[in-house]
Design a protein around this nucleic acid. Structure first.
Length: 211
DNA sequence: TCATTAACACGGG
DNA sequence: CCCGTGTTAATGA
């Protein structure tokens, strides 16, 4: 297990901390579609992602969703950071986008390490910053961009995290993530196909000329 | 004007 | 048949 930790976090954390993570953390593996964190849930451990992609989203009171950002290996969820230190509940919902594995760190350790390890402190602060920037980008998209631009952003983002220009997703899935209707997604995708920027297939979208 | 909702037809698995 | 897709008509913000 130490090998896996080092591969993803070896360049960030000092040797002692890596060893402590190895001694304390438990590995959790989840399948695509599994729910990691529910809105309103109390959290007792913080996850460090070592493989896979996690989708983090906001929900309204009726269960309607809006995607905030993706997490990939080497990253952690900013929500757990604030939830763990206080006793607040989660304001977000996290779903495994792909099969993923995570290191679970008990909250006591996560606090203890803040004082003990400089690299840990930096990691936590950097994570906060990165997540905040991601949320800012999402807010910009919602507030200032039209749906067609949001859709293009979404496709680019998704292909980046999947590391593939062929995205396996249905129009309805996209509609849920962007919090719009499938009719709009289908229409905009069709327009993008007409201008040769993407190629549409059932259950997948091939990016041709997005940028 | 543009999004949403409902409805329908088409076609592949 | 079921599901994803493409399209239209009506309605509303």
């Amino acid at each position: 297990m130490l090998e896996e930790i080092k591969r993803n976090y070896g360049h960030i954390f000092e040797e002692d901390l890596l060893q402590e993570i190895n001694d304390i953390a438990t590995i959790k593996t989840v399948n695509a579609g599994d729910e990691l964190i529910r809105t309103g849930q109390y959290l007792s451990a913080m996850p460090l992602l070592i493989d896979g992609v996690i989708k983090v989203m906001r929900e309204d009171e009726d269960g309607f969703e809006l995607m905030l950002y993706y997490l990939e290996k080497g990253e952690t969820c900013a929500m757990t950071l604030s939830c763990c230190t206080g006793s607040a509940v989660s304001e977000i919902r996290a779903i495994a986008e792909t099969e993923s594995s995570l290191l679970m760190i008990p909250i006591e350790k996560m606090e203890e390490w803040l004082g003990k390890y400089k690299s840990w402190r930096n990691f936590i602060f950097d994570s906060y910053h990165e997540r905040l920037m991601e949320v800012m980008a999402t807010i910009d998209n919602i507030a200032f961009k039209k749906m067609d631009e949001r859709l293009i952003e979404y496709l680019k983002n998704k292909s980046k995290y999947y590391n593939d220009s062929e995205i396996k997703v249905t129009h309805q899935d996209i509609a849920f993530d962007l919090h719009t209707s499938r009719v709009v997604v289908s229409r905009l995708l069709k327009q993008l196909e007409k201008t040769n920027r993407i190629k549409l297939n059932r259950n997948s979208i091939k990016l041709i000329d997005i940028d």
